[in-house]
Nucleic acid binder design. Structure first.
Lengths: 170, 170
DNA sequence: TTAAACTTTCAGAAATTACTGAAACATCAG
DNA sequence: CTGATGTTTCAGTAATTTCTGAAAGTTTAA
């Protein structure tokens, strides 16, 4: 019940959130019928929800011997879940914005107002680009390194200062 | 037109997004009527949209002498806009999830299944907590430091290794 | 205190999004 | 090939969200 509630806050709709919560919480894989009965939703809705979760690369399908049913379970660890949600949301929310901005920046400004508008768009573009670039670099680091970095927190600035000093000395 | 389009991807609804886009792109502050005419939306809708944007701390109101109208313009720089959207989304999306998880973790598991469920919830809780903690530490850094860090990208791991070696030598 | 000029509120309408259930489709054992 | 046991699709309906516009509220100048 509670798990469904929180799901709706993470980019998919209520039932899809509930379905994913259910799958995470259950140690063993569930069939479509299990899900539809547990959450009181139609069989068709489960099918659509699974499709949605697959498009987020969040569930996997298994088959059991002597059984034609499909069994669903979460794909990957909690950590992977987080990076996938992060990545997919970036694709859906940031990437289209970036390409829209790029297109707009190609146009010649026709007057003073458009010059100003383009300046602002440029700022937003650069910010988003730096951000997504950084995010993808972080994702390419190993989870362990990333955890170290996160634990370090703002202390990282000290390390950077330190590096600067070191470089300047040479 | 295009600006409205992208707005709808960032946590508020279409018209609110359009309104904010309009405000960013215009150098000078706009009145509620300006906005409602530019976007072809009702006066009441503008009022509600402004309220929404204020709850995100994204617009400010100005008054001009000899004029009773309210003039709206974006609050803060593009950089501040980004950190505010980030922060507000965290408040709306992550914080409630965290407190929900905390509540659930206080319950005694009644059986083996619940033990497993709680383990998973614990993992998610810890991950979210580390993440939000890190995010707030980063936000407490100056924008300049943060930009340096972002430019450094995954190269940061080298710096961390370097620090480790240094510490181990002493 | 009044009226003009503005802003806010909110009930109902419109638009959008999500869900159902029945029909179509797929796979496989006999 | 057939029927049993599944999954997927999708038109129509239900639920939710957003928007309108008229009424109520606020502020200020005279």
């Amino acid at each position: 019940m509670h798990c469904g509630e929180m799901g709706s806050r993470w980019g998919f709709n209520r039932t899809v959130g509930q379905m994913y919560g259910l799958l995470i919480i259950h140690e063993d894989a569930l069939t479509a019928i299990d899900i539809s009965e547990a959450l009181n939703i139609s069989r068709g809705n489960v099918s659509m929800g699974i499709k949605e979760l697959q498009s987020w690369r969040l569930v996997q399908v298994q088959h059991k011997p002597k059984d034609r049913k499909e069994y669903y379970s979460p794909a990957g660890s909690i950590w992977e879940m987080a990076t996938r949600v992060f990545e997919e949301r970036r694709k859906r929310e940031v990437d289209p914005t970036l390409s829209l901005l790029r297109d707009n920046l190609l146009d010649e400004p026709a007057n003073q107002k458009e010059v100003y508008a383009q300046e602002k768009m440029h700022e937003i573009h650069d910010l988003l680009e730096t951000g997504t670039h950084w995010a993808s670099e972080l994702q390419s680091m190993s989870p362990d390194k990333l955890k170290t970095l996160m634990k370090l927190g703002s202390g990282v600035s000290k390390v950077i200062n330190f590096k600067d000093k070191f470089i300047n000395k040479n």
